[in-house]
Design a protein around this nucleic acid. Structure first.
Lengths: 198, 198
DNA sequence: CGAATTGTGTACCGATCGGTATAAAAAAAT
DNA sequence: ATTTTTTTATACCGATCGGTACACAATTCG
């Protein structure tokens, strides 16, 4: 009961996500947010708690709507396809024609003041979690004889994540999707199309 | 003549560089700067103009003292050695035990408010200039038959810079030097030690 | 119809932001 | 010793930061 909300929470969160994505956590002011979302500060605080809570919910939405390819990719039967799907998935989300360039998980708070230390830590853990999940997937691949010879699963995971994070910087600097695809093709070249079957 | 300056300009600039490196342009306040440098605001403004001027001078110092390996690497006779020296040079400066992790050219202003747009643009151009210089070097290598077959010089340059930027994120997230070296070893694997001699 | 509940608009809070006016302090020049 | 020049310290500027108190508007429940 009570007075009905005059805005759509999901729409507002989508806008907040895009703002944080483009300008980072500290670079986005409450004025940016309220003007962009079309709501007042008390409404924002009523629904999302505070700026930090809003960012975390925006990050959650980002993971759910833009990073869904990641855990889908882990289901690929061949490790090389896992890597390729992840690399292409990142490149695509980083260079969408509509929406900001780069990656919210990096743009959000790469280097920041002490006031954003908690957000920064959260984003670091977020990236490490993805890398760990990929490493686990490659561990399985190692047991299946599905990895390039002479490499540790977690090193391969770091390799793939490093390329993905590199393309995030490239995208944030203006690189377009075809350019990133060419980088990815090179990065995958050392990974044989077909690994020795046993 | 006049009253002598009570601080060393170079020491102060070194401190400012490290602060901007660790906390970014907008994440570093004038209070951070003056307290770290051990000087007052009027002294800072007297010598460096304003915050933006101080950042640009800090960036200049960074390029001169931390990125000197880059143009040295371009002088290597073989393209693969150019690439390897650049990749290892970045990884080393990003993981120095003393000093901040990552890269000032990325941490400085990856995503930011409109107030820092000029700094952001300057850093983007900075990165693109490096990539272009490397591309030019690889163009020469192509003429010398010193490139892996089937790749454009500027694509290879983007590839190398993407890895370097990726390791910058990795370092900012806590990855240590040996971990980055292993990534670099993988990234170089697709680049034959010896290219077909003609 | 009240009464209770919830969202909205306005106006404000203390703290901090980058930046500066002013005057005292410390040196060189005369 | 006095003037001139430069740097220093203090104290302040308007603007903006994230966040909130308060009154009012809009709905449901009794």
């Amino acid at each position: 009961m009570g007075r009905p909300r005059e805005f759509d929470v999901d729409d507002a969160l989508e806008t907040a996500m895009e703002l944080f994505w483009r300008k980072g956590y500290e670079g986005t002011s409450l004025t940016d947010l309220t003007e962009g979302m079309g709501i007042t500060k008390p409404s924002l605080y009523g629904v999302f708690g505070n700026k930090e809570g809003l960012f975390l919910k925006a990050l959650e939405r980002y993971e759910r709507t833009k990073m869904n390819f990641f855990h889908e990719a882990l289901k690929e039967p061949k490790a090389r396809d896992v890597a390729e799907k992840i690399l292409r998935g990142f490149a695509e989300s980083q260079t969408a024609e509509t929406g900001p360039s780069g990656c919210l998980g990096i743009n959000g708070a790469l280097a920041c003041s002490e006031a954003a230390a908690e957000i920064q830590k959260c984003l670091i853990e977020n990236r490490q979690r993805g890398e760990r999940d990929l490493g686990r997937r490659f561990e399985r691949a190692a047991k299946e004889g599905d990895l390039p010879a002479g490499h540790e699963p977690y090193d391969l995971a770091r390799y793939v994540m490093t390329i993905s994070q590199g393309t995030a910087i490239q995208a944030a600097s203006g690189a377009d999707r075809p350019a990133l695809y060419r980088v990815i093709d090179m990065a995958l070249q050392f990974w044989p199309e077909t690994v020795a079957q046993n």
